[in-house]
Design a protein around this nucleic acid. Sequence first.
DNA 1: ACCTGAACACCGTTCAAGT
DNA 2: ACCTGAACACCGTTCAAGT
Lengths: 212, 212
Amino acid sequence: MPKKSKDSYHHGDLRQALIDAAIVLLRERGINDLSLREVAKRAGVSHTAPYRHFNDKHALLCAIAAVGFKRLADAMQQCIAQDPQNPLKQLQASGLAYVRLAVQYPDITHLMFGGALGYENLPADLIEVSDAAFGGLLQIIDNGKQAGLYQDEDTMSLALVVWSSVHGLSMLISAGKLQDHVKNQDDVDCMAELVTRFLLSGIKSDKLGAPE
Amino acid sequence: MPKKSKDSYHHGDLRQALIDAAIVLLRERGINDLSLREVAKRAGVSHTAPYRHFNDKHALLCAIAAVGFKRLADAMQQCIAQDPQNPLKQLQASGLAYVRLAVQYPDITHLMFGGALGYENLPADLIEVSDAAFGGLLQIIDNGKQAGLYQDEDTMSLALVVWSSVHGLSMLISAGKLQDHVKNQDDVDCMAELVTRFLLSGIKSDKLGAPE
DNA sequence: ACCTGAACACCGTTCAAGT
DNA sequence: ACCTGAACACCGTTCAAGT
């Protein structure tokens, strides 16, 4: 029987195996001590094999960041699907999901938003999945806007303000800057609720009553 | 004439010269291509000389981050000093200053808040100057609270919400994630104003009128 | 005290060679 | 097509040695 096209040679999918090994290593050692040679060793191949699947170390790091953006984009869509008729709940759920992902995967989060990948020359597929994540948030805001939930400001401005607030909380927690005030999962959820609540009462149309 | 104590040997202050060279190199090459050996070469000393002043590369990076936090702390104090009787203006000015510093020094900002330094084992002087920066913001919030500017929420919660929003905007801009919407200094200022405005109308006491 | 050069283990990347 | 081992230039860090 002839071998299947993709199930060739070693694992069948060395590219994915390298990404998986790199994510584990990133969590174990941090971004500064992640070496391509060690990733290859973990995946069981020679230290030059990764170059068959990635142009260089930067490309592998970009692939990890893409995994993070994919998780974020999926979470946004799930928030919409869970309460299709309730844009307010969509917003609250998306803020919570954003912060939880950042806390769960701090290293990937910093890879996604820190300066480690540089500010340009990012691969097209990374840009694409990053735009998809922001697009989900835009959709949530637009849902609320059409329901008359927000002040008369354009959707993009509203989305940028919401994104900034939730993103800032996520980065501060995942960087350990709020260690004294946010110690466990309950504190994380509580802070996310607090930020979302203040944000809502700020951007919410004056014509509507209290959120509950 | 005998040499002055600190003006010894090469520069008089090799420690500072190394920090300065490292900051330049950081901006030129990015965090991933900053090498201790190149920093030493730029400062005109052998590649082992830095170890007289820093335990390791991590310690030098921490010193750079400390410079960034010092700038931030100073900016907060300046915002207070500029309008001692106007807590609202203090808040607006501090948000603007925060974002501007992040845009001006994106690499140092990511060093301060990204995961490159790890999440623990940070030197005491870095923690200290970092706390000073946040302390300035706390003071600004407390000033406004005593003036009846904000809702009846404890100062720490208010400060964390404000910090998150402004921090998020700063990180998104300095990471280039808003390139399509924030292209120049005017856009930066405009976005900072937008975030601060929404934030204020959210946390502002209902008993007061419009901010102007 | 402060700096140096040699040394060690490791890294990212290239390339001719193997199957 | 996919993988390998040798090679190159570079890195962080240590250490005995110089003034």
